[in-house]
Amino acid sequence: MATITTTDGTHIFYKDWGSKDAQPIIFSHGWPLSADVWDAQMVFFANQGFRTIAHDRRSHGRSDQVWHNNTMDQYGDDLAELIEQLDLHDVILVGHSTGGGEVTRYVGRHGTGRVAKIALIGAVPPLMLKTEANPDGLPLDVFDGIRKGTNANRSQFFKDLTIPFYGYNREGAVISEGIREEFWRQGMMGGLKGQLDSIRAFSESDFHQDLKAFDKPTLVLHGDDDQIVPIGASALSTVKIVKHAVLKVYEGGDHGLTQTHQDRFNADLLDFINA
């Protein structure tokens, strides 16, 4: 397995497909998944002539399960170390959900010197938690419920979570048991402690200042029926901060649209990259 070792000694697993001389695209996954969720995109874009890279966030997938440092700052720093150790330039960053937070925090802490474009997909910025200053966010008890379900019986919780995640509770939805089983498999590969810490990281991290550092072409893509990361407190707020961002909304789109709308998403992302 290919890994890098971060400055705090954590081994981060990554996949690296396509030509090493091609422009790189880095895909950052959502909670509680792994790099495997991006396999279809990695194959598609590698076949389009790009170098495609995806890593397992610390305490997720095949990366080390660590007790400390499961924070958004560290996720951003891990991404920076991956980019620097592979000596990547002109990178296209693509982050889904928590991965969108990771990408955003990377830009806030490390700048865009190695970055060409950014795509935030169903992403958590600028802030998921409801506060006086962020009334469209979700109340803390929602995230307490996620913590409780994950801690008490994460196997069952992950299975149940696939229903709203992919919009399978909507009229006319075609349920894929394969997608549900794959979500469960990837989730169960991760470490419980890190996954619990990550809930705080994705829900309580404030990305307003990070988004102000965006100075590269940016795509903000979101489903308007996202039941996990509601569009109002996320994408619609992000594009008010990143003034040059391109907003693309999938009507009726769910949170897992990179899989449920795979061909459409791949085409839209390719159009953005090539624009």
Rank of each mutant, 00 (worst) to 15 (best):
A2K: 12
A2N: 14
I4L: 11
T5P: 02
G9W: 06
S19L: 10
P24W: 00
I25Y: 05
D36R: 11
D36T: 10
V37M: 15
D39F: 00
D39H: 10
A40G: 12
V43C: 01
F50N: 03
R51W: 08
A54R: 04
W67C: 02
W67E: 14
Q74A: 12
Q74D: 06
D78L: 06
E81M: 08
E81W: 02
L82D: 06
I83A: 04
E84A: 12
L88V: 05
H89I: 00
L93C: 09
S97V: 03
G99C: 03
G99N: 09
R105E: 13
R109K: 14
R109S: 11
A116S: 15
A116V: 05
K117F: 03
I118H: 06
P125S: 04
P126H: 09
A133F: 00
P135V: 08
D136V: 11
D136G: 00
L138I: 09
D141T: 12
G145D: 07
A152S: 14
R154Q: 02
P164W: 01
N169R: 01
R170F: 12
A173T: 10
S176V: 11
R180H: 02
E182N: 15
F183T: 01
Q195H: 07
A201N: 09
D206N: 15
H208P: 00
L211W: 04
K216W: 04
T218L: 09
T218F: 05
T218D: 04
G223D: 10
Q227G: 00
V229P: 03
G232F: 00
A233L: 10
S234Q: 09
K240T: 15
V242C: 01
K243N: 09
H244E: 14
H244Y: 01
E251G: 08
D254P: 06
H255E: 08
F265R: 01
L270S: 05
F272A: 04
I273N: 09
I273F: 01
A275G: 15
A275K: 15
